[in-house]
Nucleic acid binder design. Structure first.
Lengths: 226, 226
DNA sequence: ATAACATAGTACCGTACGGTACGGTACCTT
DNA sequence: AAGGTACCGTACCGTACGGTACTATGTTAT
């Protein structure tokens, strides 16, 4: 009998809440990510088991069901996608600009990469039917995380007298738009041609130039937020 | 025998190439679109037949297979999504600005709407596994179509001495970024809160203001493209 | 040593769905 | 009236897949 407390002595093998997935479990998640990149959402649990050399039963014991497996993979990987960092020490206009350009370059590289695209595609597929929280997770680790990282930087820039703005959300949205532009949606819709490093760099430099025209104080009268 | 020309006298009931889908066929496609909005990609052929009050056999006779049905729906609908128009007659700075703002408002409304989101989500899901051309179709009717409509407008603006730029692709990308910003990706990832009309208007006005700062000639020294 | 447990491998079950076949009906043409 | 065509409704088939059960093989703890 399934619910019998005397027979039901199995220990709990699902992901450890505090330590996160074990080494072996992470191997499995890596395999899942590979399959995501290769086949989108169309891989089966059997194919995961095959790829990871584990049994299906183990998958279910560890992750509950398919959704749990996807969620664990996205959760682990979304935060792992090499996200740009900005050095808070530097504070001259030139170093500030350099920092923003570097951030922009990394960002464009990430969103036009296969891993990020696969995660977003999967999350978007699932978001449409509201069955899982993958969309939320990716949103939280993508755009929202970028906002979290950038906003303090903008504030530093303002404190240093380099830029000015009223609304932190608005300035973030401007930066987002100028940097990401249509790169992401084109990639998500399957456009094959990835931009060259040169193309990415040019876009980033131009985006930051424009951003500083709009919000920089050195560029005199141009700021509409005064 | 299947290929026997004498026995194989059936007429071709698939979509007429020159006239497009018949009225009845369009009814079916409308039902499919509704299901797309409601359930994403997870509706079955049986549910389509039920909703459209037609037989599955008819679906297959008309559209070949599930992919054909999806393609027909996306193809018909993607171009139908109420896309902003710009009046080419007016040519003063203020009317030019008004035109750009109106276009931006419509655009944001479209991409944050359920129909557009459903089409993009479906196309993105299918793009990941490269099995169908839905991504291409949506890309062609979305971003690429916007570019086709906007570029001549920009050229008009340049001819009228209102804006200046070197590269038509670059100026389009700037406009795209400032207007679309993160609205679309957030919607695609399932963010529930739709922006208010006021919020959309504000964004559009701000985007165009910034756009004109970057590219307008009246705004003096600010243009980096001189 | 031996008992308890974890895991790989595999067989199996139920179901959902894409696709096909067929009977019945309405309409159109001759 | 008779034949043909298009269509609806439904039953059916094969397959793929999520999920479960069972066995065999270590591995660890006592």
């Amino acid at each position: 009998m399934k619910g019998d407390v005397f027979l039901d002595q199995q220990t709990d093998n699902s992901i450890n809440a505090e330590n996160g997935p074990s080494a072996r479990q992470q191997e499995v998640l890596t395999a899942v990510l590979d399959l995501m990149v290769e086949e989108g959402d169309r891989f089966s649990m059997a194919s995961v088991a095959r790829r990871a050399s584990c049994s299906k039963e183990t998958l279910y014991k560890w992750f509950g069901d398919r959704d749990g497996l996807l969620t664990a993979t996205v959760q682990r990987q979304a935060s792992k996608v090499a996200m740009p960092e900005l050095d808070r020490q530097e504070i001259t206009l030139e170093s500030f600009r350099r920092g923003l350009v570097g951030f922009a370059i990394s960002w464009i590289q990430v969103i036009t990469g296969d891993v990020s695209a696969a995660l977003n595609q999967l999350a978007i597929s699932h978001a449409s039917s509201g069955k899982s929280r993958l969309g939320e997770i990716v949103l939280n680790n993508g755009p929202s995380e970028m906002a979290r990282r950038l906003k303090p930087i903008f504030q530093l820039g303002r404190d240093a007298g380099l830029i000015q703005f009223d609304n932190i959300d608005t300035i973030f949205r401007s930066y987002f738009g100028l940097v990401v532009a249509d790169w992401q949606i084109r990639k998500l819709l399957g456009e094959k041609t990835r931009p060259s490093s040169k193309g990415i760099e040019d876009t980033a430099v131009r985006a930051v130039d424009q951003f500083l025209i709009l919000y920089g104080v050195n560029e005199k009268t141009n700021n509409i937020n005064v």
